[in-house]
Design a protein around this nucleic acid. Structure first.
Length: 231
DNA sequence: GCGACAG
DNA sequence: ATCTTGTCGC
């Protein structure tokens, strides 16, 4: 792989990212979360996309895709490692969400093309980056209280909001991915919270990808409903 | 030159 | 990210 070429591609592509709301998702019907994981055995990259109803935030549909890992993890080039498998999961979806929360940064990236922005641009839907750690930029120490907020500044511009989503937890880094602005990014993430550090779409994507018990119970319940449909 | 560095 | 035991807190 040619990192210099990928960097040039990022710089050229970043200019197409839309950083304001130009899409009418003021009343989204479906909000999705995406998460990518890696399996040591077989060098497999796995993606899960969970579709949730809004505003109830119930799991509605999910898809999982697995492909052979194509690239190593290199800070600043995560999207090239993750977007192929994300596209594979995306293509399996029976319905398209109005908004997608991606595990990682959006424009809070050295060249303004984190995985949330890059993938959003590829499938042309509104996306928001929800990252658990900083990649670039600086921010002032955050108050302890839940809800504490600080701008993440990089090269003289605000690229994300640092938000303590839960007491005694490290803050989240919320950035516009594509077709979203800073304020609405925070707004939608806040409407997706249910008392945990991460918003529900991301939590469900992780539960699906990791086959957690919460997801197993959901799947079990759905199978029973299919065999014994309510009158 | 040295440190920092999403997942 | 993944691996991985016990531990702390609600």
């Amino acid at each position: 792989m040619d990192i210099a070429a990928l960097r040039a591609e990022q710089i050229a592509t970043a200019g197409s990212v839309i950083r304001h709301d130009d899409f009418a998702f003021s009343h989204p019907g479906l909000i999705a979360g995406a998460d990518v994981g890696f399996e040591q055995v077989g060098e497999v990259t796995r993606a899960a996309i969970a579709l949730l109803r809004f505003p109830s935030l119930e799991l509605f549909e999910f898809q999982v895709a697995r492909i052979t890992t194509t690239m190593p993890y290199i800070p600043g080039f995560l999207s090239f490692r993750e977007y192929p498998v994300l596209l594979a999961a995306w293509d399996k979806l029976g319905r398209r969400p109005d908004l997608l929360l991606v595990d990682g940064h959006g424009i809070s990236h050295p060249r303004r093309l984190g995985v949330a922005s890059h993938f959003g641009l590829l499938v042309d839907i509104p996306t928001i980056g929800v990252a658990k750690r900083r990649l670039c930029g600086k921010f002032a120490p955050l108050a302890e209280a839940q809800g504490a907020l600080a701008p993440l500044m990089d090269k003289g511009e605000q690229v994300a909001l640092v938000w303590r989503s839960k007491l005694r937890c490290n803050p989240l880094f919320i950035s516009p991915g594509h077709r979203a602005g800073l304020a609405s990014a925070l707004h939608w993430v806040q409407l997706c919270m249910r008392g945990y550090r991460l918003p529900e779409p991301t939590r469900w994507a992780d539960a699906v990808a990791s086959n957690r018990t919460a997801f197993q119970r959901w799947q079990q319940a759905r199978e029973e409903a299919d065999f014994f449909p309510p009158q």
